[in-house]
Write a protein that binds this DNA or RNA. Structure first.
Lengths: 220, 220
DNA sequence: TACTACAATATCGTATACGATTTGTCAAGA
DNA sequence: TCTTGACAAATCGTATACGATATTGTAGTA
């Protein structure tokens, strides 16, 4: 299963290309600021420019690419301020989801979450680590039954995680993150909504601070 | 000035058409479930299908249209559950914005908000009323300096407001709404973040309840 | 009549083609 | 050397064209 944001099951080649580009951007094969040449992408996937442009429009809506009139699309760059904003949006939406989800979490959900945390402990590949990290969060939000919110949060998550991946490669962020994950899960298990929401908020705030100071260094 | 969600200033005909369709959907000229024929729209605006499809992709991202493979796009329909979800997302995001904005609100902002409320008192046209209603909210959120959040909130707002317009036409919702607006503004003026946020939350919850019960009736 | 089979029509999704805009190159002049 | 301008190349945005899919209409059969 791919854990990338996907639109509803269709067979458009635009969707296939969008998924491929999303994955390339996320894995860092396409770097921030890099231009996305329509003809090049088209020939690479054996299609014309039309579906390529439609794919780029989807990514534009997700914030992953930016269009410049008559100059085409480039992979979006995020400033520290934008990362901060995205994390604030994530916090707002994810705490809402968690709040609604906790009363509906099943034993199976909690068990699955626990399993993912165990896997995360051993995962050394940062890209895979980040994907599992999202899966953990998603499991806790899913029972809220808010598909639209989930799509948007997923989009926000992938927007910042492609930066987080680069960051993680150097630092020791995972261990601290795992401690927080276990605290959140524990609060969920005991049905303590207030605590769980607060912990999640802190968890995201901390991640935001890590990433923004990292980016400010680069920008500065 | 148009208060519809607009992407950054470009000269694409796709953007022009997207704006026109958005407006038509919002004003009820295009009803929920109505198919959007590409050739028809193309000839109406004197262009080919290509920019029309690109416009439809933008609206798809905004949730205003839904694509069915090989059958084209239709104006999205919202269930009561979806309206509820959208209002929950709005509450999460808008309270975040308001919280950040209040310390930065200027006298001029408050004055402008007051003026809009006065205009709202006299406005009888529901479409115009709804636009002014959004302007009031937007003024209170703007100083938060969160452009991405604003875009998304605007999108969510227009998604439900096209239904609200139909609803408003019959009911006496505006007066109650205005009372709440004035309470919110008053809390903002005194810099009382907690109260303002709570009032905003209630304001949206009430609107949600109105609209969802209305839709549940229709759904039968 | 009700239902299937199949042709006719409508509409979609996308390849091809091309004018328009931008970018890159390079020679002439300050 | 540094501009500047003009031409060439690259790339974009979109019109046209067409095969593919879905929908509709019609005739034939049970």
């Amino acid at each position: 299963m791919s854990s990338f944001p996907a639109s509803s099951e269709t067979h458009y080649s635009a969707d296939t290309i969008a998924a491929a580009l999303r994955s390339d951007i996320w894995h860092g094969k396409l770097r921030s600021g890099e231009p996305l040449r329509q003809d090049e992408i088209a020939s690479r996937y054996g299609v014309s420019k039309i579906p390529v442009r439609e794919a780029l429009y989807q990514l534009k809506a997700e914030g992953l690419v930016t269009f410049y009139p008559n100059r085409g699309a480039v992979v979006s760059e995020l400033s520290a301020a934008e990362v901060d904003e995205i994390y604030a949006m994530r916090a707002a939406l994810e705490t809402t989801a968690l709040q609604r989800a906790i009363p509906r979490l099943t034993i199976a959900d909690l068990k699955r979450a626990e399993e993912i945390l165990s896997t995360l402990d051993q995962e050394k590949n940062v890209a895979r680590w980040s994907e599992l990290n999202w899966e953990f969060h998603a499991i806790l939000y899913d029972p809220a039954n808010m598909p639209r919110l989930m799509e948007w949060v997923k989009t926000l998550h992938f927007n910042v995680s492609r930066y987080l991946i680069i960051y993680l490669a150097g630092m020791d962020y995972q261990n601290q993150s795992q401690v927080e994950h276990r605290q959140i899960l524990s609060a969920c298990r005991s049905g303590d909504i207030v605590t769980a929401v607060n912990l999640l908020q802190q968890h995201l705030q901390l991640a935001s601070k890590h990433l923004t100071t990292f980016l400010k260094d680069l920008e500065g």
